[in-house]
């Protein structure tokens, strides 16, 4: 009488052919979150300006404060050299006294644009709304 064959312990059972999806799901969601965060951080922002119509810009003689952005990063306000932080403080004081104050921003032609934006940023923080731009020697 033949003995029944014992199963061979050394023969591997066939592995499942399906790709495990759980880790793939994690990678997919991580990539999605990364892309969303990267896109949100790229939102454009800017300092708004409304230019006057050509030939329509007339700066009044009174109620004007002159801020000059000079080459080398220097700033003057009514002739006195000040820092960027002081500019904000002084402008707030002047605007409290005269809310209709016009800020004339004069920049030297060789001054960096970055410097002009720094000044305009301080003006925005001080809530100065009437701004006139002039470039000297352009």
């Amino acid at each position: 009488m033949a003995r029944p064959r014992r199963p061979n312990r050394f023969v591997r059972a066939p592995e499942p052919t399906e790709i495990p999806g759980a880790s793939l799901l994690d990678v997919g969601f991580l990539l999605l979150i990364f892309l969303m965060v990267a896109t949100i951080s790229q939102v454009e922002q800017g300092i708004p300006l409304v230019l006057p119509r050509p030939g329509a810009s007339v700066v009044p003689a009174q109620g004007v404060v002159e801020v000059r952005a000079l080459g080398g990063g220097r700033i003057t306000m009514d002739g006195a050299t000040i820092t960027l932080a002081e500019l904000g403080l002084r402008l707030r004081q002047r605007l409290e006294e005269d809310p209709g104050l016009v800020v004339l921003v004069a920049t030297e032609a060789q001054a960096r644009y970055r410097h002009l934006v720094d000044v305009l940023d301080e003006l925005q923080k001080a809530h100065a709304t009437k701004i006139s731009l002039r470039t000297e020697g352009a």
Partner: peptide, 19 residues
């Protein structure tokens, strides 16, 4: 505009846009 551009260039571009 690049922050290192001179205000001369910015003034020229703004004038062209205004015109």
């Amino acid at each position: 505009a690049d922050g290192d551009v001179s205000c001369r260039v910015i003034s020229r571009v703004l004038r062209a846009l205004q015109q």
